[in-house]
Nucleic acid binder design. Structure first.
Lengths: 330, 330
DNA sequence: CTGTTAGCGCCTTCAG
DNA sequence: CTGAAGGCGCTAACAG
């Protein structure tokens, strides 16, 4: 229609200077009137890159991820950051959380890099991806090797340590740490928080006992019942609750049974302040800076994709936000 | 490595019968040991289809969408349904909610069909997509033309009508309908709910007044203040609250100011029951069946992509779930 | 400045 | 049963 060859059209579409203004004009008019848009698929094929970031979640854990209070903030931060630099996000699920399963879906996708939302550390997967030269970033510490720094998260050891220290400083000793678990297995950040918790206990000279760790499912449907079951037989003076949903469920249980917070029990939550602002009473909590970690994740991943050196700064120390749910034990 | 041509490998990868078992074996071994995976990009290019569904949101409205309580359930339902049939979901944002802006990003993507999360009706966009033969489904009624049935949502007119009828039946007449708005414009479902509200009023012989409609932002950061500002000067006996975040903010305001629900004020919410289960007091609400509509959206879209005839059933009537937040006005 | 050519990886003919 | 050839849409390199 513009009486030019595809090459010239290509040049126009790619803003090459090597086109006479008059020709460019003709081409643009034709493009306009035909509604022509270059085929994304052909471009991907030709360039070998898609400007797509794969967000990998295991199907087994997707509920856990999505119904986590931080998910919305995380999703927003990830997409906005990625879209800001011209990348789109593709949601990918693997059947389960094993390295092979992740690796299989990852290899078969046309994405330039992957964000792996894994519930557990997964050194094996990292090795496989390294071997294949596929850029990736995890949402948390995924390995114990010091050279494995391709993740960004809040420092969960510190979180557990600071939260426990806060309660211990208020004279609480009968503290329970409520954690979610998937098939009886602790997700990594709970392991870290637990280590921090134990560290604080030992500094205060309180012996750690197994029963201080209470496993209650973090899903909306099950949390409340789990809390109710626990309180049928136990009466601690303070709780640390690792999961926002469970924290909300606990508050609901207290509301329903006339248990006053913090007068009857002190509670510390973990997670984004934005979430806790919406609960009553307003919970004292360890704020995880989701916007920071999500932004960092995309940033690092893009650096890996572009082959640039990446800045190493995987952890951010969480902040204790004191609100209305913790009180000194007299 | 297997001493065969690419053609044969292709046949093996595609389970063609035209390969001698021994050859197939050799090829599979080579595939295994090389970790060969066919290029997704090349396949997309060749077939002209990507098995990707684009989820289109305007950048302006992404917060609103994500921080809506139904989003998590919706996201889960959409991804699980899509993944279940071998499609992945690509998150796409358009700069704004204008037809041209949506159309631009849609045309430039390598997706087989699009789910359009629009805050407003958008007949113009639908026409453009129809002209280009691009399959799409909206997340809500997007047009007044009876032939435009490419959407699935809860019936918001009924929602407003039933909710208002419930309060009117409890003798409330000083009812306010709190709706979110984006730049002063009502999102479509609020328009529908408002129409239902007015219909119920008129059946009860209560004159509608402009001030019954109260616009308060639905964002977490702004809702609480909006509620506080409203209650400085007003004292209705009942509220309908169109946005879950605002409903939670109102409950928090009541908690903070000693206002008892439902003794001092009755409240009806809108949105998924899963969400309201987590609030105290437990709100009476119109349940929107997110799982149904999300499932339906993907189903219809796939039917359009495959060129099958689509079942027409765009609306689901919402259900009044009576809990602890509404009481008879004596 | 513009046209011609070739090739990205895959799959589907068509030949043998 | 397997190989050879061609083309999907695009762009970079080369020629003019």
């Amino acid at each position: 229609m513009a009486n030019v060859t595809p090459s010239t059209v290509s040049r126009v579409m790619n803003d090459s200077k090597l086109v006479k203004p008059r020709t460019r004009q003709r081409v643009l008019e034709a493009v306009q009137s035909l509604g022509y848009v270059p085929s994304k698929a052909a471009r991907m094929f030709k360039y070998g890159k898609s400007r797509i970031i794969g967000l990998v979640v295991s199907a087994q854990h997707i509920s856990e991820l999505i119904f986590n209070a931080g998910f919305q903030a995380q999703f927003k931060a990830l997409t906005e950051k990625a879209h800001g630099v011209g990348y789109n996000i593709l949601i990918i699920t693997s059947a389960d959380a094993h390295a092979e399963s992740y690796f299989g879906v990852i290899k078969s996708q046309a994405a330039d890099g992957f964000i792996i939302m894994s519930p557990y550390a997964n050194e094996a997967l990292a090795s496989m991806l390294d071997d294949s030269g596929i850029p990736y970033i995890f949402n948390m510490k995924y390995s114990d090797r010091p050279e494995d720094v391709y993740f960004a998260s809040s420092d969960d050891f510190e979180g557990g340590y600071i939260a426990a220290g806060h309660l211990l400083g208020l004279n609480h000793t009968d503290i329970r740490f409520i954690v979610g678990s998937v098939k009886g297995r602790l997700v990594s950040f709970n392991n870290e928080r637990m280590r921090g918790f134990m560290q604080a206990l030992s500094e205060y000279g309180i012996p750690f006992k197994e029963e201080m760790i209470v496993r209650i499912p973090g899903q909306p449907e099950e949390s409340y019942d789990g809390i109710a079951r626990f309180f049928r037989s136990e009466k601690p003076t303070a709780l640390m609750i690792s999961n926002e949903i469970t924290a909300a469920a606990a508050l609901n249980y207290f509301y329903d049974h006339g248990i006053r917070v913090p007068r009857d029990i002190s509670v510390v939550g973990f997670g984004p302040s934005e979430y806790y602002r919406g609960l009553r009473p307003h919970l004292t909590h360890m704020n995880a800076d989701i916007a920071w970690s999500s932004g960092r994740i995309v940033e690092m991943l893009l650096q890996r994709i572009e082959g640039e050196p990446i800045g190493i700064e995987p952890f951010k120390k969480p902040e204790l936000v004191i609100r209305d749910s913790t009180a000194r034990l007299e």
